[in-house]
Design a protein around this nucleic acid. Structure first.
Length: 617
DNA sequence: GTAGGGTTAG
């Protein structure tokens, strides 16, 4: 006897005993196939006409056991629902809830709300939270406000579930004002509502207000901490995110996945490998399982903090991979100058049937420019673009790269043009650099880095009119150059140097060290770049007396605090300049240190007087 | 008689 027949017999027996057993039976379903058996019997036995039984069926579809294919169950539920003559409030709620959630279609929730109102049904305190969730997902703030009015009309605005979902909706729709007004009207906000306010303010970029809420609320739980940490991370306040993670541990609150993503992202952006490793250990210690997003964040952290081998190992162990996890891996390899491997992963990605997106192309383009390759677009296979790199001479013609950008199956965005501009600099192609620079300064006029890069390309070619033109454009548009800074981790402490800032407690000794370094590398053949050329080329402002970029102070401290054979990691916010690059090469040789420097674009691994970028960057 | 809110992150 086959399985479905034995199941059928079981069902028939069960249904004769009516609902409590039906409930049990539904609980044993693990997916659509089993559900269909139950449904078939409900139809045959007319049980489907029983509103309660039909509701149980819908409830199952809306809230299936983990692992079941929720979207297909939702469509099945809708079919069942559409065959019901007069669905009751419960059934509407179940369907509205279903569509509003994961793998659903929030606009259907709103359709159903209209439909139930037409049918003369009155939404209750359960309907509204689902409806607001749908509005939030769609970003329909206006619709949300109208429904808010309905809530007041039916006298439900005092319900805490309704209140928090309303706040959440206003937060997602960017209406922080409405949210704070609403919050002030709530007499006794509970922890969920307080937490939602933390979300509201971090969503609006008002981190101080968010923190104020966080500090003022009477009891915080894991979600609250997580919300505040992610808020900091999302708004670029990485140090604060890590500080808060430390306090969270002191308070013995266990972090969840979302919090860890914020923590890892912060470590990745700061480039703190020590912090990142500690976060990873925390995850292992607390059995926090790697899902797709968390796994990708971990890959990114290791890649951006300089441990590309570990990043690869984590990536290979991920339970699943999507376009973004592939892209993160490819971009990470690109940063480390692992050109061939990056291209290999790109072809693996395409081979796995994962469609690349714009950021993927940016990463591939940067692979090519770092590796002295030019990207070449070939014919499409299975609708996906295929691409490989072809070696180019140093003199490099970039026309093919430019053509690649123009022929890409996605609209080139700022970062793609930016990658091409970087390639122009490497290949010393000022004509194209000028062209691409113009596109970029129009596309993203507020982005100071592109003016600087374009101006450096001109300077290198001796085209001073181009340089002054770009400087003028920057001034006219009020674009500020980002201040250079370098971070170095030594003895478990992070030292930050900002251009022109001499606040480090050991600045005197550092300057002395720098003088010594200068003497010894000069003996090894270093000729500092000075004067006009420097002024026009460097990305960081020239120090009035000495050509001392923040990076040089970091190098000096690194040499000071370590012995021969040590590895010193430095993270910069801008691209490394040619002079610093030269200096670091020489220091690595003369002082027998390894430097792993992360600049805005990529890693430079200095050892024995050479750099892993082979002077392409 | 059946159900629900806040972290959604890379």
């Amino acid at each position: 006897m086959n399985a479905s027949r034995s199941a059928s017999l079981l069902v028939a027996k069960a249904l004769s005993a009516k609902s409590p057993v039906l409930q049990l039976l539904l609980e044993t379903c693990t997916g659509l196939p089993q559900l269909k058996v139950v449904h078939a019997h409900m139809l045959r036995s007319q049980l489907i006409a029983d509103v309660f039984c039909a509701s149980r069926l819908l409830a199952f579809c809306v809230d299936p056991p983990t692992g079941a294919d929720r979207p297909s169950l939702l469509y099945y539920a809708e079919k069942v629902f559409s065959l019901v003559d007069q669905p009751n409030l419960f059934m509407y709620n179940a369907m509205i809830r279903g569509w509003s959630g994961h793998g659903g279609d929030p606009s259907r929730s709103l359709d159903l709300l209209r439909q139930m109102l037409r049918m003369g049904l009155r939404p209750d305190n359960l309907t509204f939270p689902f409806v607001f969730k749908a509005c939030a997902a769609l970003g329909y703030g206006g619709m949300g406000r109208q429904v808010h009015g309905q809530v007041v009309l039916v006298g439900l605005w005092g319900d805490p579930y309704v209140q928090s979902s309303l706040l959440h909706m206003y937060a997602r729709c960017g209406n922080g004002g409405a949210a704070s007004r609403l919050f002030r009207e709530i007499e006794r906000p509970d922890a969920v509502i307080w937490t939602t306010m933390v979300l509201v303010y971090s969503q609006c970029g008002e981190l101080l207000s968010a923190r104020k809420m966080f500090d003022e609320m009477p009891d915080r739980n894991a979600a609250t901490w997580s919300c505040m940490i992610s808020g900091y991370a999302k708004n670029g306040h990485f140090e604060e995110a890590l500080d808060l993670f430390r306090s969270m541990q002191l308070e013995k609150v266990r972090a969840n996945e979302a919090a860890m993503v914020g923590v890892l992202t912060s470590c990745a952006n700061l480039g703190t490998l020590e912090g990142g490793k500690m976060a990873h250990e925390y995850m292992v210690r607390h059995n926090i399982v790697l899902n797709l997003i968390l796994g990708t964040a971990l890959v990114e952290m290791y890649a951006k903090c300089g441990d590309i081998q570990r990043a690869i190992a984590i990536f290979e162990q991920l339970p699943e991979r999507d376009w973004l996890s592939w892209t993160t891996m490819i971009a990470g390899l690109a940063m480390h100058g692992c050109t061939l491997m990056a291209l290999e992963y790109f072809s693996k990605m395409v081979g796995a049937g994962v469609a690349p997106r714009a950021i993927t192309f940016t990463a591939v383009l940067s692979v090519c420019s770092h590796g002295g390759l030019v990207a070449e677009a070939l014919s499409s296979q299975n609708g996906a673009l295929w691409m490989h790199g072809r070696p180019l001479g140093r003199a490099g013609k970039l026309q093919e790269a430019e053509r690649f950008v123009l022929e890409m199956p996605v609209e080139p965005d700022g970062s793609i043009w930016g990658a091409l501009l970087g390639a122009c600099r490497i290949h010393r192609n000022s004509a194209m650099g000028k062209r691409v620079g113009e596109i970029l300064t129009q596309l993203q006029p507020e982005h100071g880095g592109y003016y600087v890069l374009a101006s450096n390309i001109c300077a290198k070619a001796g085209q001073w009119e181009g340089v002054s033109e770009l400087r003028r454009a920057m001034k006219e548009r009020g674009v500020k150059k980002e201040l250079g800074h370098s971070l170095v981790e030594l003895d478990g402490r992070a030292h930050l140097f900002i251009t022109g800032d001499k606040s480090h407690p050991e600045i005197g000794k550092i300057e002395e060290m720098w003088e010594e370094i200068l003497q010894r590398i000069r003996a090894a053949g270093y000729v500092g770049r000075t004067g006009e050329v420097l002024f026009d080329i460097e990305e960081e402002e020239k120090d009035s007396a000495l050509t001392k970029h923040s990076e040089k102070l970091a190098i000096a401290l690194g040499v000071m605090k370590t012995g021969p054979g040590a590895t010193i990691r430095i993270v910069k916010n801008l691209r490394v300049c040619e002079d610093c690059h030269e200096v670091t090469k020489l220091v690595s040789e003369v002082f027998h240190r390894e430097f792993i420097v992360r600049d805005r674009n990529r890693f430079h691994h200095f050892k024995g007087g050479k750099c892993s970028c082979l002077d392409y960057w």
